[in-house]
Design a protein around this nucleic acid. Structure first.
Lengths: 232, 232
DNA sequence: CACAAACTTGTACCGAGTTCAATTTTGATC
DNA sequence: GATCAAAATTGAACTCGGTACAAGTTTGTG
């Protein structure tokens, strides 16, 4: 009765994919703001009501994780050796998860680059992934939830920085390099920052590509953390 | 002509404060979702149109920085000795800026705690502060914009973690302790994380107070960074 | 006083998201 | 295969945040 027998589940997944595909197609063609949810529903041959049965918001149409993703994350985590240092394992899992689907990575970057307002919903939509790595790190450091949170947030700061510094025309390998070096830098500690002459690894980060937009009035470079760091 | 002569500017500030005060009062009394912008406008004896001349969104009514804040940030930065290590100065500036107005700090925490959806707008509203520290760090490490971004994001990860782990009933000093220890931990590097037995400093962080909600399905613990770290 | 710029206002409008009752589809049971 | 309940879909009406714009009002200046 309450069991999702084959056909029902299959149809649900089909509708989910139809909605996502319609959303991606329309938004790619005309831009996020120029497409209404009613159009997306119509393109997927479904009513607006049904659309909102599947997605919580217009943004989640584009950003919600694919139903298959959690299984992939679990596989990545299971592949890490038990005696590997936590920070190294975290780096590998995060890197692999992010870089797995290149087209999705590119779409997200272009969405967020073209439309500031997308970044916050993107954060919400990726909460499942955050929850996953939170659990994984928690398994490694069970006695200290606050340290777990700090480690996870620091790792995501690295991801965010690499993401903003990345320019797709340089290719995905470049993105992986940015990630790698960010993890190295934070892993080694920020106490002895250069005061004028960057350390070699960081200088290399910079050398790797243009970072002009990092200096601009970009609204989200510095992570969501600052919600709290607001005016005094 | 285009000069904001005394009376005009004074009236603007007055209207701004009336709107903010009305918003805080109504939201405190009845909760964010239960108050409409029209009510806030009416309470400030102003039209909805005028309200949106002053604030970009309902959230910004509560979260936009006070016009006086930037001057205070500048004063904080100017007070740092030139030869102070960057990470230490950053810690002091951020801590002082955040902890300056205790009531605002409490209001934000309660807002965000009661209403997940507030966190992202809070991030947007605090962009001016992020921009400020980005500039300050950039002045210290002028040659390496990407390292600057990494440092700023790491610092904000610390702030975010402390913020989430903080429980106001323990008092603001406790919050400052969380900040302090987070800066120390990240400053020293995350390469040698304990795998079961937390290092002393981090354990102390944990000892300082309950962190139960850190482990829950909290949607934003791990910073906005993950917008990009989404599903593979 | 006169004039222009800045500010306010009301109205009309758009689109996201909710609610709900009515209807259809699906799966299980007899 | 007929029946019945749960699940899914639908349309309609509605709320509310946010925009556009033209008309009116206030303020500073010459």
């Amino acid at each position: 009765m309450t069991q999702a027998s084959g056909l029902r589940a299959a149809k649900k997944l089909e509708t989910w994919r139809a909605l996502r595909a319609a959303a991606i197609e329309l938004v790619n063609a005309r831009g996020f703001a120029a497409v209404s949810v009613e159009e997306i529903a119509a393109a997927a041959r479904v009513s607006k009501s049904t659309l909102f049965n599947y997605f919580d918001s217009k943004e989640s149409l584009l950003l919600d994780p694919d139903p298959e993703d959690p299984a992939r994350w679990r596989a990545l985590a299971a592949a890490r050796p038990a005696d590997e240092p936590t920070w190294d394992g975290l780096r590998e899992i995060v890197t692999a998860a992010i870089c797995h689907d290149e087209s999705k990575l590119l779409m997200r970057k272009s969405l967020i680059d073209q439309c500031q307002v997308m970044l916050e919903p993107a954060m919400a939509a990726s909460e499942p992934f955050r929850g996953f790595i939170r659990e994984w790190v928690g398994g490694r450091i069970p006695a200290d939830p606050l340290l777990v949170a700090l480690v996870v947030n620091a790792a995501l700061a690295v991801v965010h920085t690499a993401y903003r510094g990345w320019h797709p025309e340089d290719g995905v390998p470049h993105f992986r390099t940015l990630l790698r070096r960010g993890f190295d830098t934070v892993g080694q500690g920020l106490l002895n920052l250069p005061a004028g002459s960057p350390d070699p690894a960081a200088a290399a980060l910079n050398r790797a590509g243009p970072v002009a937009n990092l200096a601009g009035p970009v609204s989200s470079l510095a992570g969501p953390v600052s919600s709290l760091a607001g005016p005094s």
